[in-house]
Design a protein around this nucleic acid. Structure first.
Ligand SMILES: [Zn+2]
Ligand SMILES: [Zn+2]
Ligand SMILES: [Zn+2]
Ligand SMILES: [Zn+2]
Lengths: 551, 551
DNA sequence: CAATAAGGTCACAAGGTCAG
DNA sequence: CTGACCTTGTGACCTTATTG
C-alpha cells in the first residue's frame, strides 16, 4: 500500500510538472513514466495478490463548459485497454468465490485463499502506457472545472488483477485531486457569495466554534443517555434531563417501581423516560452520586483527564444507542429507505430531464447546494448516523457526497446508468431493488472514512448485516458489495468487509439472513416519529457549505 | 467492645502461656478460663444487645503437613455447639424484619428495633467451654503453617447472640494471630529472597519513602473537611473551598438556615456543601475566626507544631470519609459492582477460552501483569479504599491479588468453579449473584491484612454490613462466605491446599493450582511497565510488581 | 526580596421554577 | 413528571497585602 501512494506521488508530480513546465514536458514525461512503472513493478513484485476490489474507470458528469469529451475519451481509452485485456483473461477462481475475505486486504497476510493470476497472459503494459500518456496530455487541456469528481470507480466483475487496479486507482486519485485543486477557489467564492448577510456570518462563526471543539473535545455527551451533556453533574457528564431526574431521585428518595423488562432496558436519549428504574440503575452504574459533586471552576488538569476518560465510556454508550436503533431490522430498513427516498425525490427534481451521453452533469450548479443539503439530510436521517461524533460525520459526508449523489442518480435513471456504466453492470444495477440501493448508499457513507473509529465500524457493520438480511445471502455476492467497494475505494484504501467463501459460512449467512418483510404501515409511523426539535449537533446546512468550500 | 479485646488478650495470654509453659498447662488453663468467662460476663452485663453481624467459626483448608484434622474437628466442635444451640433458639423477630437497620449497629443506639434474645434459653456455656478447651489443646499440636488465616468470620442468620459472637470473635482472632506469628518468618524470608537485585532495592526504597510520607505528613489536610489544604487560613489549615466559604460567611454575615439533621452532619470534602449550617459550626469548632488571621511567612517551628496537632484529627476524619461513602447503600453497592465488573471484563479477556481440568492456570504468564493491574484498579475503585493509608493498601493488595483473581475468574466461568470447588459450594456459587460476588471480592481485599488498623476494620465492617443488606440474611449463611474462604486458601503461594472433605476434588485441585506459582522472571519485565506518572495516592503498578516479587 | 495569606474573580454546578 | 432556564453558591486561580 505504501508503494501505491509512492507511485501516486510520482504520477502526481509528473502531472504537476507538466502543467507548470510545459517546455520540459517530453523529458519529464519519459523520466516520470519510467519512475511510475518502476514503482508499479515493485508493487507487483511485492504482492501477486489480487484485490477483490476491482475498479473500473468511468467518467462522470462533466461540467458542460469543459472539453470533457476529450478527457472522457482519454479516460475511456485507459478503461477499454484494461477491460479488453481483462475480458480476454480467463477466470481462475471458482464462481461461488465471488465475495472475498477480509484477510486478503491485510498487507502482511498470506494469500492462501487469494486468487492467483500469475499464469494469466500479461497485460499489454505498453498499451496502457500509451493511453495513460494520452490521458496525460488530455489532462493538460482540461480546465478541471467539473462540478463533481471527474472519475468514479465502479466495481467490475470479475475482479481485475491488482496491478491494473493500481493503475486505475492512481489515475483516479490524480485526476480527482487535480479537480479538487482547480475547483477550490471556485467553490470557495461561491460559498462566500451566499454568506454575505451578517446573520449568516454570525451563525457561521458560532458553527465553526462548535465545529472545532468537538474534534478536540468530542462535544461532551451525556454519559447516561448520550444526549448533549450540559455539564458535569453529580460526578458524571450529564444532560439537563438526566441531571434533573437524578436530583429528584436523591431529593425525594423515590422508590421507582420494578422494571417490566427485567432491568435490561438500554437508556438512550429517546427512551430515557420509559423506565425510571433502569434509568436510576444506569445513573448509579456510571457513578452518579451526591458524593461526587464538584463545585466551582474545573481544574484544568482534571478536565483533560476527565475528557479522556469519558472517551471510553462514551463509545460504549453510543454503540448501545446504535444497537438500539438496529434492534428491529424492519424499522431500521424503513428509516434507511425513507431517507433514501427523500434524497431520491430531491435529486430527481434537480436532475435535468434527459441527459445525453456528452451532455455534462445532470445536475446544474445552482442546484448543487440543494443536492448536497439533501445528502446531508439523508445522512442525518440514517439510523445510527447521529451517534457518530460530529467531526466524523462531517468527514464522512465530505468524502462521499458525490458518490451518494451518483448512486442516487443512477438509481433514479436507469437510462442514465446504462449510458454511464459499462453494459456489464447495467443488468446488475440496484435500481430494481430500492432496499439494496438505500442500504448501499448508507454503507457508502458510513464505511467511507479512512481511519474508521470503533463507532463508525460498528455502524457500518450494522448496515452490512442489514444488507445481508434484507437482500439475502445471494445478493451479498459480487455486485452490490463490489459496487459499494468501488464507490468507497476512491476515497480511501480501506480494508474491506468481506464474507468468506467457505461453505459453512455461507450456511451461517443464510440462516442469519432470514427474510425480512416490510409493511407499509411502519413507514407512516416512523415518519411521524421524527423529533420535532433537532438535536443541536446535527450537521447543518451551514456545514454543507463548509463541505463545499473545502473542495 | 473494649471488653472484648480485653478478654481476648486474656485468652491470648492463655494460649501463649500454654505454648511456652507446657508444664503449667492445667493450672493456667483453669485460671485463664475463669478470667475469660468473667470478662464475658462483664460483657454480657454491659450489653444485652444482639449483634446482627454474627460470626460462625469455620475451619479451613489446612496445610497438608500439619495435623489439621484434629484442629479442624476441634474448631468444628465449637462451631457446632454454638450452631446447635442457635438453631434450637426460637426466632423472636418478625419474619419481615429481615434486613437490618443501620442504627442497630451503633453502639450507643437504643435497641428499640433490635432483636431481644433475653428470653432465649441460655446457651450451654459449659459445652462451649469444653469445646474451647479442647480446641485449646489442639492448638498446641498445631504448627500453624496455614498459608492463610485459618478462620474467618461469617455472618449467620438468624443473628447469634452477642456473647457467642464474642466467643467466636475471640477464638478467631486468637487462632489467626497465632497463625500470623508462626508464619511471620516464613513470609519474611520469601520477601527478602526475591529482592536481591539492586534495581528492585532502589525501587523498594523509594517506595517506602513515599509510603511513609503520607502517613506521617499527609500533605496537610483541611481541618474542616479533610480535603487537601491550600494553606493556613483564618487560623486553621483549610482548603480553598472552606476558605472561600468562610470568607463569604464573615463578609456577608450570612445566616444559614437550620440544619435538617439536628446539627449532626459530618463534614467531609464530599458533602461539605450539603449543610451550610453545620459547615459553619464546624469552622467555628476548629477555631476558624477572623481574629485568627495571620499574615506573612510562617515560622518553621510553629508550622511543625501545627502539623503535629493536626495529625490527631486525621484518623477520625478519614473514618468520617469512609462513613460518608457508605451512607447510601445503593451507591456504595453500585460502585463496588462497577469496580468488579471492570475487573471481570479484563480478566475475562485474559482467560484462556477453554480451560481443561488439568490445563493449569487459566491466565498465562504475560497476561498476569495486566491481571494484577486490573486488581489494583478494582481496589482503587472500591468505595472507601483510597481512604486507607497507602502502606495498608499495598499490604492488602499484596496479600489478596490472587484470591481476587480467582474469585473473579470463578465468577466468570461457572464451569471452572464446578470443577474446582467441592460440590457443596457449587450450588451456592456467587456466579448467579454478581452483587454478592463483588462484595465478597471487596471483603477479601479489605478484611485481609494481618494487623488491621482502626481504619481498615472500619472499612471491612462497612462491607460486611453491605453484604448483609444486599444479599439478605438468607444468603448471609455460611456457604458463600466459605466459598470465599476456600478461594483464599487455595490460591495461596504455598504448596497446594487440599479439600479434606471431598475425595474427588483433591487431585483436580492439585493440578489446577500448581501453575499459579509465579516465576521470578516477572520481576524483570514488570519493572519496565511502571507507569510514567502515577498519581501519588493510588497504588501503582510498580507496587503491583512488588506484589509479584514477593511471591 | 521570598513566602504566604487575604481577598477578588468568574467559569461552573446545585437546586429551584414552571410551562409543557 | 420532565427538562430548559434561572438564581445562587462554589472554588481554582489570580492579584494584592503582609511579614520574616
Ligand atoms: Zn442524559
Ligand atoms: Zn427497565
Ligand atoms: Zn476544607
Ligand atoms: Zn447539618
Amino acid at each position: 500500500m505504501l508503494r501505491i501512494s509512492e507511485a501516486e506521488r510520482n504520477l502526481e508530480s509528473i502531472l504537476g510538472q507538466r502543467q507548470f513546465n510545459k517546455k520540459k514536458r517530453k523529458t519529464c514525461n519519459d523520466a516520470t513514466q519510467l519512475d511510475f512503472f518502476k514503482s508499479e513493478e515493485q508493487f507487483l513484485n511485492d504482492s501477486t495478490k489480487v484485490g477483490n476490489l476491482s475498479l473500473t474507470v468511468a467518467p462522470l458528469f462533466p461540467s458542460p463548459n469543459s472539453p470533457i469529451p476529450n478527457a472522457f475519451i482519454g479516460l475511456l481509452l485507459v478503461y477499454k485497454s484494461i477491460e479488453n485485456w481483462h475480458s480476454s483473461t480467463p477466470l481462475k477462481r471458482s464462481p461461488n468465490a465471488i465475495v472475498v475475505r477480509d484477510s486478503e486486504f491485510d498487507d502482511d497476510d498470506d494469500d492462501n485463499n487469494a486468487f492467483k493470476f500469475s499464469n494469466n497472459p500479461p497485460l499489454d503494459i505498453s498499451n496502457v502506457r500509451r493511453n495513460i500518456s494520452s490521458v496525460s496530455s488530455l489532462l493538460d487541456s482540461l480546465d478541471f472545472s467539473f462540478s463533481t469528481f471527474p472519475i468514479q470507480c465502479i466495481p467490475s466483475n470479475p475482479p481485475i488483477e491488482r496491478h491494473i487496479l493500481f493503475i486505475c486507482h492512481s489515475l483516479i486519485r490524480i485526476v480527482n485531486r487535480r479537480f479538487l485543486q482547480s475547483n477550490k477557489r471556485l467553490f470557495h467564492r461561491k460559498a462566500v457569495s451566499t454568506r454575505n448577510s451578517p446573520k449568516v456570518n454570525a451563525n457561521e462563526a458560532k458553527q465553526e466554534s462548535t465545529d472545532d471543539s468537538p474534534s478536540n473535545v468530542p462535544s461532551l455527551l451525556c454519559q447516561v443517555c448520550s444526549d448533549k451533556a450540559s455539564g458535569f453533574h453529580y460526578g458524571v457528564f450529564a444532560c439537563e434531563g438526566c441531571k434533573g431526574f437524578f436530583r429528584r431521585s436523591i431529593q425525594q428518595k423515590i422508590e421507582y417501581r420494578e422494571c417490566p423488562r427485567n432491568e435490561q432496558c438500554l437508556i438512550v436519549s429517546n427512551n430515557r423516560n420509559r423506565c425510571q428504574h433502569c434509568s436510576l440503575k444506569k445513573f448509579l452504574s456510571v457513578g452518579m452520586s451526591r458524593d461526587a459533586v464538584r463545585f466551582g471552576r474545573v481544574p484544568k488538569r482534571e478536565k483533560a483527564r476527565m475528557v479522556e476518560e469519558m472517551q471510553k465510556t462514551c463509545v460504549q454508550s453510543q454503540r448501545d444507542t446504535i444497537a438500539v436503533q438496529f434492534e428491529n431490522d424492519t424499522e431500521a430498513l424503513e428509516k434507511t429507505m425513507n431517507a433514501f427516498r427523500t434524497l431520491q425525490t430531491t435529486i430527481d427534481s434537480l436532475m435535468k430531464p434527459s441527459m445525453p451521453l456528452a451532455g455534462g452533469c445532470p445536475i446544474e450548479f445552482p442546484s448543487y447546494l440543494t443536492a448536497i443539503k439533501a445528502v446531508v439530510e439523508f445522512a442525518n436521517g440514517l439510523p445510527g448516523f447521529l451517534c457518530l461524533p460530529q467531526s466524523e460525520r462531517i468527514l464522512m459526508i465530505k468524502s462521499t457526497v458525490f458518490d451518494i449523489l451518483l448512486l442516487c442518480g443512477l438509481s433514479i435513471r436507469s437510462d442514465l446508468a446504462s449510458m454511464v456504466l459499462p453494459p456489464l453492470f447495467v443488468s446488475q444495477l440496484p435500481t430494481s431493488s430500492p432496499k439494496t440501493c438505500a442500504i448501499l448508499a448508507a454503507l457508502t457513507l458510513c464505511h467511507s472514512i479512512q481511519q474508521p473509529t470503533e463507532l463508525s465500524l460498528s455502524l457500518s457493520e450494522k448496515y452490512w448485516l442489514l444488507l445481508a438480511r434484507v437482500a439475502g445471502p445471494l445478493s451479498l455476492t459480487a455486485v452490490p458489495a463490489l459496487l459499494l467497494l468501488c464507490l468507497r475505494t476512491f476515497t480511501a484504501p480501506l480494508p474491506v468487509r468481506i464474507f468468506s467463501n467457505t461453505q459453512t459460512n455461507t450456511d451461517r449467512l443464510t440462516r442469519l439472513c432470514s427474510p425480512l418483510t416490510i409493511t407499509d404501515s411502519i413507514e407512516v409511523s416512523s415518519l411521524s416519529l421524527v423529533r420535532n426539535s433537532p438535536p443541536r449537533d446535527v450537521v447543518t446546512s451551514s456545514e454543507c457549505i463548509d463541505v463545499v468550500s473545502e473542495f
